[in-house]
Structure formats: structure tokens, C-alpha cells
Computed example of a mutant assay.
Amino acid sequence: MLREVVATRYVTPLREGGSLPGIVEGDDLGTYVMKFTGAGQGRKTLVAEIICGELGRSLGLRVPELVTMELDPVIGLSEPDQEVQELLKASGGLNLGMDYLPGSIGFDPLAYEVGPAEAGRIVWFDALINNVDRSWRNPNMLVWHGDLFLIDHGATMIWHHNWPTAQASAAKPYNASDHALAPFSPDVRAAAEALAPLVTEELLAEVTAAVPDEWLVDEPGFATTDELRRAYAEPLLARAATVHERIVMDAPTARRPSQAPGWLAARLRPARRQGGQEDAR
């Protein structure tokens, strides 16, 4: 289960994403990025964040800690932005918090190099959860203390938006051509050999159990929240064994220049060896 934290202060909104998450402080003295139940994407986005975030962590990938956060909308009364105030009013009660990584920077594939093994594990994981939002356009990865952290898993398991077609949708190939880590020769087969055996019924029962009941109730077609949890687990269990055989990696649709300033790119890019010589360019 996730830790429970009470939000004590609303600090500032984050306007990079469409859901308008915000930085908040908790009663444990921690700082979190809060994602709100009242946002336009709805509670299913938060369900996906928990299931995929906790699954990734269980598979050894770096994901900032997730917590449930109790929000009293009164803490946002001093916020001058009317849109933010309305979002807070609509999100009273339980929301989702992600540990804030101070000083982290967005991943730039032209400034930070990733080895084939790590790239393969991340691409395989994204294929498993059908993550359509880790492309070079929007990598949804942070570099913190030199390590890659995976964030923003709300746009995953798209089959849960139409349960009658879930089985057919989950069986489709995964196109990784535009994946942010495609240029790093991801070793997907080695990743599958290491990670697929770890995706068991027991593990999936554990990660789906982390979702609060109140975010699962009243889902059409399901009599109980436990039935819905099993519906989330079944496609993931089925995909784990063979999804690496259905990963498509063609030429990307386009390229963009590095967004990192030159001094930062030079610091982030690990030294490469060319002809036995160190090359830090």
C-alpha cells in the first residue's frame, strides 16, 4: 500500500502538462508533485500512475515514490489563479502525490547517454504498459544525481478506457520508433529475459491493491473493485511473456535539436571512447 500524506501547503502550479499538477508540502515535511482527481483526465489517469509506477519500481526501474495525499481545498485560497482554485475545489479528498526531486532536469537524448541494457529495460517496460507518452517529443524522464527516473504514467494501459476491447487492444504491437531511448540501441530481448518472469499474478495483485477503492468504484461492467483490479492485471500478465516480439522500431518520424544549453549538454554527456582516447565532446 502507498503511504498516506496530508497536504499542508500549496506551493505553486506546474504548467508543463495539461492536467495542471502542483507542488505541495506534506505533513511528513516532504515536498510532492500532486496530481488531482478533479483534473480533466479523471481518476483513471491516477489509477494508471499507481499501477504502472509501482510495477516499474517492483521491476527495478527508478520511479519517484508515490503517495496518496489528502487535500483540504482551503489550502489553496491564497492562490491568485482562478483556474488553480477551481481545480483544488474539485479535488477535495484523496489525490496522488509523487516525490519531488529537487534539482532534477528533464531528460535530453542529445545531452545524456543511456546504455543498451538500461534503455532496453525501459523500452520493454513501456511496451508492457503500452506507454504512448515517452517519445523524443515528451520523454517523461528526469535526470537526478546522474540517474534516470521515470515519471508520468497516466497515458498508459489505454485499453482501460474501453474495457470491452481491452483484450484485443492489449494484443496489439508496440511502436517504439519515436521512443526517447530508441537511439541508444535498446537490448529489449535481454530485458525481456530478465523482467518478464518477474511479472506474476502475485506481483500484479500487489500493485493493483495499491489503488484506493474510491478510484475504482462504479466502473461500468464490474460488480466489485476486486473484479476491476483483476481486469487491470490480466492484460499485463498476458503481454509480459511475448510483448518483446511485437515491439516495432523503425526510423523515427522526425528529429529535434537538443533543448539543453551547450554548457549543460557538455556536463551531462558521459565521456566516450574513440580509438582508445577519451572524448568528452
Rank of each mutant, 00 (worst) to 15 (best):
T224P: 04
I51M: 09
Y232V: 02
I122H: 00
A127S: 14
E79L: 04
E70S: 13
A205P: 01
R57W: 10
P116F: 01
T45C: 13
H153S: 06
G40H: 13
P21Q: 08
A90M: 08
V143G: 01
Y174K: 07
A39L: 07
W159Y: 15
E245R: 14
T165D: 13
W159S: 12
A265K: 15
G60V: 09
A180W: 02
P109W: 06
I105A: 07
I129S: 10
G26T: 01
R246F: 10
G53S: 08
E113M: 10
V6T: 14
E4T: 08
Q274H: 10
P220F: 12
D72W: 03
W144E: 06
G22Q: 04
F125M: 07
E245V: 00
E54P: 09
A90I: 03
L20Q: 06
L142T: 02
R273D: 06
E25D: 11
V199H: 00
R239W: 06
A7L: 09
E49C: 06
T165A: 13
T242A: 08
R230N: 05
G146V: 05
T156E: 13
W159I: 02
R15Y: 14
P212V: 09
K35T: 04
G154L: 08
R3G: 15
A260T: 12
L148N: 00
D152F: 07
H244M: 01
A191C: 03
R229T: 09
D226P: 01
I105F: 04
A111R: 06
G97R: 01
I105H: 02
L14H: 02
I105W: 05
R255T: 15
P139V: 03
L61D: 07
L55K: 03
G22E: 02
A260K: 13
F149N: 04
A265V: 06
K44T: 12
Q259C: 00
R256I: 12
A251W: 15
V199R: 00
R15H: 12
G154Q: 07
D213S: 15
E219A: 13
E214D: 13
R230P: 00
A271D: 15
N175R: 11
G40N: 12
G18A: 15
D27F: 03
L20C: 07
L198E: 14
P109S: 06
A119D: 01
I50Y: 09
L110K: 12
S258I: 05
A176Y: 14
G18E: 12
M141G: 01
W163K: 04
V207M: 08
Q167F: 02
A176L: 11
V217P: 01
A90Y: 07
I129L: 11
G30P: 03
L55F: 03
R281F: 11
A90F: 07
M34W: 00
T45N: 12
A171R: 12
A170Q: 03
D147W: 01
F36R: 08
N95A: 06
L181H: 04
G30E: 05
P102F: 09
P212I: 08
D178K: 13
P13V: 05
M98D: 00
A39W: 08
T224G: 05
A170K: 02
A48S: 15
D99S: 14
V132K: 13
G262M: 09
A117D: 14
N130D: 14
